[in-house]
Computed example of a mutant assay.
Amino acid sequence: MEYKSGSIAYSLKKYSSDLFIGLLNQINGQKDLILSPQLIPIFDLMFGFTLLKTPSTSKKVCFVIESTLTDTQMVANAINADKRRGAEDIEYWIVFVPKKIQICDECLEREGVYQYITLLNYPLGLIPLDIDLFSLEFPDFYANSFLFGDQCGLSRINQSLSQLQGLVGLISRAYIKGKYATIVSDYLTQTSSESANSLSTGFISDLILVDRDEDYVSVLMSQLNYMGIQICDECLEREGVYQYITLLNYPLGLIPLDVDLFSLEFPDFYANSFLFGDQCGLSRINQSLSQLQGLVGLIPRAYIKGKYATIVSDYLTQTSSESANSLSTGFISDLILVDRDEDYVSVLMSQLNYMGEKWNLVPK
């Protein structure tokens, strides 16, 4: 994805790309580049493989891996396999992301390959996933820090924030909540005071740092919460077919299941709205009620109970006032809107509860 020049996403992507290419240029001549499987999607997003792919029959091999025991052991096994085949003239390099740690050294020494390898660090920081969404792509951080008490991951956060300030300027204020957030904030304050003479105040005025154990709700956030229906466009762009397609919308509203029973047939609404906090589904309810009023006339009164019911009612009031001149009062006099978390009983209702009498299943 290309970003507008001057944006934070553009600056981060360019900085990371230039840093990595500069690192590879330290290895003179052509080299075979072997990436850890976990890093392939990240590097493809940051640089694109066209930047990295060049034909090579080099005797130099560069492994780019995460700083984990698993990846380091994989490299050691590959080098030992080469040695057993009699390959003695190959030069080996390892680039650790974001930096080498002690267990990596110990693994290479234990496997007897340390003397054959040159080690480098690639301090990859924040990765732009979108114009205003950034990630360290560090899935083990929560378990390591909050379950096992390992604070090594904090240095990666500190490094990424230092990189960010180096690109966009000093961050004026930090709001913190939690033990680890305090540690990171203290580091940021220290580095900011040390860099005060060389860096000016940047355009990020406020930074909010919150420990995960102070906020478990956002763990439940899905991709829809960040990008909504935009994911449809991005899927088509990613597959390279967007330019061949004309897109249309079909605003399907209430579906009549019986003479007095209607449904949106929207089974994911409860989970998305009440569990994950995604309000995108409310627009579908608003649209269906607007369609209904366009067909049968304005609904004069609404009885509401619940947060989402209030939002829908406010929308209905607004559209009703806008349509007052073009629509007359219809034959639906009252509308009752109730949030699901205000009424869990009807979740247990089956089709028999709605249609039982029709099928002669209700005792007389």
Rank of each mutant, 00 (worst) to 15 (best):
K31D: 10
M355R: 13
S288G: 12
L261G: 01
I183Q: 10
K60E: 13
G281R: 14
Q30C: 09
N80S: 15
S320D: 02
A302V: 09
D233C: 07
S56Y: 14
Y216P: 05
S160A: 12
E214M: 08
A143C: 02
S218V: 13
S313F: 08
W359N: 11
F134W: 13
K13I: 05
K307C: 01
N353P: 06
Y10L: 03
T70Q: 08
I255R: 12
M74S: 14
L170F: 10
M46G: 06
P98Q: 11
R173H: 15
G149M: 02
W93D: 11
K60S: 15
I27W: 12
T329E: 00
D18C: 00
D186S: 15
E66W: 12
G153C: 06
E342T: 05
L209I: 12
A76D: 02
F266D: 04
L35C: 07
Y122S: 08
G306C: 06
K83D: 03
S193L: 14
D105E: 13
S200R: 15
I245D: 02
L298S: 02
Q243F: 01
M355C: 05
T319N: 09
L352E: 14
V219H: 07
M227W: 10
R156W: 04
F266I: 10
D314N: 13
D82C: 11
K305F: 01
L264F: 07
G125Q: 09
